[in-house]
Each structure stands twice: as C-alpha cells, then as structure tokens.
C-alpha cells in the first residue's frame, strides 16, 4: 500500500498496464432504476351499469420466482376509488403512501368534497410523467377505477411514462394481450355499458383471470376483486380461481403420431 489511496485495490499499472476504462462510464449521467425488482403482473377492469369492477392476482414475483403470494395489489382510496397496480411493488408502496398523505391533507379542509377517481387518475398520471421526465420512473402501470365528477363510472390507466388511456375495459401487462380480446368479444364497443350488469362484469373478470392463470407464467390462482358502485366499495381478497379445466390432459398423448 502506498500514499495514493486512489490506486488502492487496483492491479498495478506497472505490472498489468493501465486499466482500460473505456468500458466504464462512471463520469456519465447518474443512473436511476432501470428495471423493476419485485413485480406484480396484470390488473384487469370492466365498467358496468352503475360501477366498475377491477381485479388482480395476489402474487409478487422476483424474476421467475413466485416470491410473495399474499400481496394485495388493489389499493382502496377513501370511499371513492380503487387503484390497481402492476409493476414494481416498492414503487407501489411509495405511491400508496403518497395517496395516503394526500388523503390526510384533503381532509383538513372541512369542505366535504372528496377527490374522485378521475381527480386521482389525473394526479397519478402527472406524478408518473414527472418521474419519467427525471429519468427515474416509478415502474408501474396502474388502473384507476371509480366515479368521475358527474358520478359516472370512471376507468382509466396510466403507465410508467405517464401515458394515459381510457376505455370501458382495460388491462395491464399480459392482460392487455390475453384479457382485452376476451372482454372485447363479451362487451363489444357498440354495446352500451348500461346493458352490462355487475354480475356480467364480475363473471367476465373471473374468466379473464382464469385465462391469465393458464397462460401467464407470472400469475397466481389467488386473486383480489373490487367492485365500486354508488353504494360503496366491496373488496374481496384471498379469492381462488375456480372451475378450471385440466382433466382433458388425459386425452393428450405424445406430440404427433403417438397414441398411447
């Protein structure tokens, strides 16, 4: 060891030659999170006559490892809205706390107005956009379900870039590929929402969760489901996907010519 701490821990230049630092960009821009760690998969939601139904499974994955199987990704905000989170769980917890502190502040003024789902979505999409503009995104894709200022059912999404999107049914992650086609077939665009009952909506979500359980390798058969109506929010956690179809596996033999 010599009197040049900057050289400590490095191979000696006089023996090995100077280090080729072109592979390092340590003087480059500050690097923030470039990928999520513990993640939740799809969230799916449907509007129906007089409300919105939203569902997500209870899994938090760590890569392909099904690490936590009791993670509730539907977070209730006041008595007005439910936010469904996919993506990074630590960022979900951060946003959850952000919403909680906002809820506390909103209740200081006794004007009696409460933030509705639409307000909440606007706020969250702006938080997400601000963070992506700082190159430090909150790694989530969220669905906000509830009511707007006119007391009409509201459903909208916002992603980690701050992109927003609204539709009578929405899904994040794998659900966007697997659930949306099912929901579109069940509830075509030309069919008015007034014709869709709460039971229809719940049944459709359960069907979508089942398909996701069959086809999404990061999904779980335990899920949470929330129904938001003017009467309030009903959340069912620790639900189990039922009526699965597996027995037909018996008829599958070999991968071509084989019959036994």
């Amino acid at each position: 060891m010599n009197h040049f701490p900057g050289t400590w821990g490095r191979p000696r230049d006089d023996v090995y030659g100077p280090y080729d630092s072109s592979y390092l960009r340590s003087t480059g821009p500050k690097a923030h999170t470039q990928s999520p760690a513990v993640t939740g998969t799809s969230v799916i939601a449907v509007k129906f006559n007089g409300g919105v139904a939203i569902a997500a499974d209870n899994l938090a994955s760590y890569g392909s490892l099904a690490r936590f199987t009791d993670v509730k990704r539907l977070r209730v905000f006041g008595d007005a809205a439910v936010v469904g989170f996919s993506g990074d769980v630590s960022d979900m917890q951060y946003i959850d706390r952000l919403l909680e502190s906002m809820d506390i502040r909103e209740n200081y003024s006794a004007h009696g107005n409460q933030l509705n789902a639409k307000n909440l979505h606007t706020y969250l999409s702006k938080v997400l956009y601000k963070r992506r503009s700082e190159f430090n995104p909150l790694w989530n894709h969220i669905l906000v379900a509830g009511f707007d200022g006119e007391k009409k059912p509201f459903l909208s999404s916002a992603d980690l870039l701050g992109t927003t999107f609204s539709a009578p049914h929405l899904a994040t992650g794998f659900g966007a590929h697997l659930a949306i086609p099912i929901l579109r077939r069940l509830f075509p665009e030309e069919r008015p929402i007034e014709e869709i009952t709460k039971e229809d909506a719940i049944k459709a979500l359960k069907e979508c969760l089942k398909v996701l359980w069959y086809r999404d390798a990061r999904s779980l058969d335990k899920y949470s489901l929330a129904v938001i109506t003017q009467e309030g929010i009903e959340v069912q956690e620790d639900q189990q996907i039922e009526a699965q179809s597996w027995a037909f596996a018996e008829t599958i033999k070999g991968y071509g010519a084989q019959t036994v």
């Binding site: 230049d13 100077p18 280090y19 630092s21």
Partner: peptide, 11 residues
C-alpha cells in the same frame, strides 16, 4: 501512477 487514473473516475 496516479496520473494514469485520469482517464477514469471522478476527481
């Protein structure tokens, strides 16, 4: 020795 590190790291 120290000089050669001018290429990398922050001063």
């Amino acid at each position: 020795m120290v000089a050669s590190h001018g290429l990398t790291g922050m001063l």
